[in-house]
Simulated assay, not measured.
Amino acid sequence: MAQKFAPRTLGVVGAAVCALALSACQDQASSGGNARDYISAAGSSTVYPFATTVGERFAEATGNKTPKIDSTGTGGGFERFCQGIGAGTPDISNASRRMKKSEYDKCQANGVKDIIEIQIGYDGLAFGEAQRGPGLALTLEDIYKALAANPYGKPNTAKTWKDVNPALPAVAISVFGPPSTSGTYDSFKELLLMAGCDKNPEMKALKASDEDKHKEVCGTFRGSPFYVEQGENDNLIISKLATNPTSVGAFGFSYLNSNRDKVKGIAIDGIQPTMETITDESYPGSRAMYIYIKKAHVGTIPGLMEYAAEFAKGAAAGGYLNEKGLIPPHKEMEAKIAATIASQTVMTGAELK
């Protein structure tokens, strides 16, 4: 049964409820005590263009209001999503990585108990350069040696790509990438930086013996001018490459795919970022996209599961989101998505790490 949002006027009973669920009561006050009549979502900048397209289709098909979607980055979206239940909090969190166990636990502590996880497809964390760029081809180890603060436990002194690998050009290391609040940043760290570190047998052994030390050595970025964090809008990175043609950009594959006239992909370990290499997960930056829904809001905020169904329709093979750059889930995943939406199955937390 869907949880209803309590009215604004709080008597003795309301005060007691607030003592037990402060965040929910704050939400009621901020929303004027009335349930919203539109969907609210926040999160990943990579999922954002897909979510807005789905929102427009959903509004046209159902007559509901167009959802309000904020591009806050995956981490920022979970932060808002997990604040509590109520009209003052998002119904949906868009994510370019899976929810972390720590985020799930925070949701639970704040009363967001039942969460529906839906994988909507794939994207890739792509490396790209300007069309007139130097034509780089990198390995995972090259990326780690160039961008780690302390590669293999020693201070990073590399200034050019040639310092990292003699086969590369003597071009200054300059990478524009996502900020630390972004799921793209987390994907970068896990899929590329730490994976490059683990190519070294000693670092792989360190992971088994001292996980915290391994994370520090393998997963800490060096700062500007070598790695320069940009905002949540990946289009900003595309524009930066136009004026900095020897620099590299790290962004969602969908942005590379829709700006092929301005930028070109950079091969990693000999594999170019394409629809095919991301679907078969051979490209190192391949990653899954998700939306998370508060089950307590279903039935109170109109159209939540209908919106999820529209997302699944657009994301499926041949769907309209494919044209936007979202790579569809494989057939087995499509069946799981449909079953999750139909049953409103919630997460247990055991599947997270």
Rank of each mutant, 00 (worst) to 15 (best):
N257E: 07
N257I: 01
S258R: 10
S258A: 11
S258Y: 04
S258T: 15
S258K: 10
N259T: 10
N259F: 10
N259S: 11
N259E: 13
N259H: 12
R260C: 01
R260N: 03
D261R: 14
D261A: 12
K262E: 10
K262H: 06
V263N: 00
V263L: 07
K264C: 09
K264E: 09
G265W: 00
G265V: 07
G265T: 08
G265P: 05
G265Q: 05
I266Q: 00
I266G: 02
I266L: 06
A267V: 07
A267Y: 02
A267W: 01
A267R: 08
A267L: 05
A267P: 02
A267F: 03
A267G: 06
D269M: 12
G270A: 13
G270L: 13
G270Y: 11
G270P: 11
G270V: 14
I271A: 08
I271T: 13
Q272C: 01
Q272Y: 01
P273D: 02
P273M: 04
P273G: 04
P273S: 06
P273T: 07
T274M: 07
T274L: 08
T274R: 04
T274Q: 07
M275N: 11
M275V: 11
E276H: 08
E276R: 11
E276W: 07
E276Y: 06
T277Q: 04
T277H: 03
T277E: 00
T277I: 07
T279M: 07
T279V: 07
T279Q: 12
T279F: 03
T279L: 11
T279G: 12
T279P: 02
D280V: 02
D280W: 00
D280N: 14
E281K: 15
E281I: 14
E281C: 09
E281A: 15
S282T: 15
S282E: 02
S282K: 13
S282G: 05
S282F: 06
S282L: 06
Y283M: 02
Y283C: 01
Y283F: 15
P284Q: 06
P284R: 01
P284D: 06
P284M: 05
G285S: 09
G285D: 04
G285L: 04
S286G: 07
S286C: 06
S286E: 00
S286I: 03
S286R: 06
S286W: 01
R287V: 14
R287C: 14
R287S: 12
R287E: 12
R287W: 09
R287D: 02
A288C: 13
A288V: 15
A288R: 14
A288F: 12
A288G: 14
A288W: 14
A288K: 15
M289K: 08
M289F: 15
M289I: 12
M289Q: 14
